[in-house]
Nucleic acid binder design. Sequence first.
DNA 1: GTCTATAAGGCGATAGAC
DNA 2: GTCTATCGCCTTATAGAC
Lengths: 196, 196
Amino acid sequence: MTDSTAPRGGKRERLVTSAGERLHRKGVAATTLADIAQAADVPVGNVYYYFKTKDDLVRAVLEAQVDQVEAMLASFETLPQPVDRLKALVRRWDEMRDVIARYGCPFGTLASELDRRDDGLDLEAAGPIRRILEWAEIQIRQLGQPDARELAITLFAGVQGGALLAGALRDPNLMSGQVRHLERWIDTVAASSTQS
Amino acid sequence: MTDSTAPRGGKRERLVTSAGERLHRKGVAATTLADIAQAADVPVGNVYYYFKTKDDLVRAVLEAQVDQVEAMLASFETLPQPVDRLKALVRRWDEMRDVIARYGCPFGTLASELDRRDDGLDLEAAGPIRRILEWAEIQIRQLGQPDARELAITLFAGVQGGALLAGALRDPNLMSGQVRHLERWIDTVAASSTQS
DNA sequence: GTCTATAAGGCGATAGAC
DNA sequence: GTCTATCGCCTTATAGAC
């Protein structure tokens, strides 16, 4: 039995994967369906069998990103301490430093581009980012910090700002340095917590 | 005598201003020359008298942004203390919080979109950001901090990350909260400095 | 279900009248 | 210098063959 979202040959899945890659590298507006279809090895006109419009395909990429985020966050749950889970989060951006220095953070750039629209896609675009902020807030609250929301924003703003500057200056080390700074910041927050 | 970059009627200037606004609100790829020309009240075909290509117009917007940054930084020079100059910088993003929550930071979003190209414009795109980082580094070094570069990056990453998250979550208060956090951070850096 | 061919419209850019 | 008219290309999307 085949998953309805992944038909025989996995063409739909291939299209979403290719679209995610192309959207990250060139942006939504600059990426054509022909570009995506070619990368997925699917005939251009056939895209419309799986997605009614280009925006529908972009929506599917956003949903795939949310799934990726959920999987990433779930993998951190094996770590016993909130401090280690938070550090594992920021280290992911260090691991992605080379691609970030060239094309930016996949979540940040897509959200940034879609946010400026007013057709509904702008609201869905925040999904991956919102999910990460919620998770970070929970971890920080477990450290005993009452203002966990603000601290979560400070943390992830540091991540996203670092990614943006690393991209602008084409410098992977900028991302690494920022991640190291954030790891020390996480230690400071944990040390100042009410947790015994 | 008329400045060669601002002909009679200021049509070129109007085009650059309109282009800056439209590029900020819709992005480079999604903005058409017809859109820009209409906003500037200039016939579409006439754009090519002032700019050879669309990219040339984008380049002019980048140069205008650098000029705006220079003017902003120059205005801070009247403040006697580096601490106050740095706080004045981040407060500018608080003043822009409403437009940032809707369309992002004008410098950050333009750089983020252009960075992913490979036609030369991607290198020029970092101009405004690079200038701000250089200036912040100088201020922080005046505080007596030896690692002024890293601290400047941390500061401006906080600004840009806050702008990105404020845009994604459509929340001006997120930008304000982040700026207040950065002001306290500036005080901390100043307090830990070797400056007597 | 899959793919080809093509429609319909919008885009950057150009030519040339005034 | 300024503007109108238009070209040629590329894009999304559709119709219909297989």
